[in-house]
Design a protein around this nucleic acid. Structure first.
Lengths: 233, 233
DNA sequence: CGCTGTGTTGAATGCCGTCAACGTCGGTGG
DNA sequence: CCACCGACGTTGACGGCATTCAACACAGCG
């Protein structure tokens, strides 16, 4: 009998179709941990010695260049794997993972990877599929940065955030974690000034509502028009 | 005895440390094919039914968006895998692969993947490592597009191309396949006009030499200064 | 109550995309 | 052989979008 209960993860897509036995096998090799807001769960270029499954919270994946400039590669949502360097045969993490809010995650030591994948091959294929999706998303991002204006990129990014991490409120869909203008700028390759201007304009148009480290999309439909339409107005 | 000889691939990093038996097992499941210049070996969103190893030539991996704009995700060099959608659990190819010159490649049907990875696990890990490297490279590209000016991006791209696909000549290192200004623009997220202007300027400075669909880097050191230095001159 | 992190807004600069015109190369067919 | 044509490349002029610089406002916190 593992310390962690199978119901923790049984509902997640990654684990669909697994037997109780397999779930227990996975869980009894994992440890659960709580990570307070702003903690670096692991650091870029640090020795990769574990991989993780986010149970609750939101995690910011950040890449830093040699000049100290940083970009946000993605946000991790509950139910997603992260830090799976071992699946790519990497010895170090390619980015840092920062808790955007208080988080709970399962952690497996890398040494468990061969056993886990041998005993539960669906777990391995889930991990590889995750990596494939991230590669695709990252390539989509390159294409967006090549072909779209800043305005469209920011709009697309907001729509993706509310779609992946949105929470319904009375006024619209709110991004479920604190996010600054600077953060959005680092996701879209622009400056916080430009993001602030765009959000202010959209607020005047009634598409979004802002607040300190808060963004609520109140009119996703019209925001999508801005995101798609090449020339607006 | 397979039709294809083990010496074809024995020297490649992907296959280092494999026994003759394992190499033969891999080879006897593959078919070798020749792809003439400009042929699409597979198409974006097409049904992924095979994966490939490039033996000779150069392949352009191209992503197209709904507006018909395209970006070049990467070039594949001899010895590299491509089209390995099956390793990411994908049913379709995320991009098109175009022969930049006449090419020779091995092709395995996707159905062979389970057998191959079961019998030669090092082959699977090589594929997963390849995917990991491409994810990292793509994320590096996002960071470059976020933090660097066009001039630096083009310089970095040229340096990477000559490093990965360069051929020594009397005048410098030449990119070993035909590449247009438009191609370079599609790799860097700019226009052929800007690329042309930059190459002309660099030619005046003695850093590169150009020709129709040809680029020779004659002074990699000073080109690197342009690539690295934030503000040049 | 000051300090730090966050957000807003105006003004000016400049990079680079867009538009336009022309030049050049190489292959093809008469 | 040579004229033609399309693909590729070059260069100038112009303008707009977004960054940069600057100043200020506001919130939360010790």
């Amino acid at each position: 009998m593992p310390e962690l209960d199978g119901s923790l993860i049984a509902g997640l897509p990654l684990f669909s179709g697994m037997s109780k036995k397999e779930l227990d096998f996975l869980l009894c090799r994992a440890r659960s941990a709580r990570y307070p807001k702003d903690l670096a769960i692991f650091e870029q270029d640090g020795n990769a010695d574990a991989f993780f499954l986010l149970l609750d919270g939101h995690i910011r994946v950040v890449r830093l260049n040699e000049d100290g400039e940083q970009v946000i590669a993605r946000y991790i949502n509950p139910g997603e794997l992260f830090g799976i360097a071992v699946a790519m045969g990497r010895a170090t993490y390619p980015a840092s993972a920062i808790a955007a809010v208080d988080c709970v995650a399962l952690a497996w030591p890398n040494e468990a990877w061969p056993d886990l994948t041998a005993r539960v091959p669906q777990f391995a294929s889930g991990a590889y599929r995750t990596i494939g999706e991230r590669l695709q998303e990252t390539q989509d991002q390159v294409m967006q940065m090549s072909t779209e204006q800043v305005e469209q990129r920011v709009a697309h990014t907001l729509l993706r955030l509310v779609q992946q991490s949105g929470r319904k409120t009375a006024e619209g869909i709110e991004i479920d974690f604190p996010i600054t203008r600077q953060d959005i700028a680092e996701m879209t390759g622009t400056t916080l000034h430009t993001v602030s201007r765009l959000l202010s304009a959209w607020e005047d148009m009634g598409l979004v509502r802002g607040g300190r480290q808060r963004v609520i999309v109140t009119d996703a439909h019209n925001l999508m028009l801005i995101a798609e339409h090449r020339r607006k107005r």
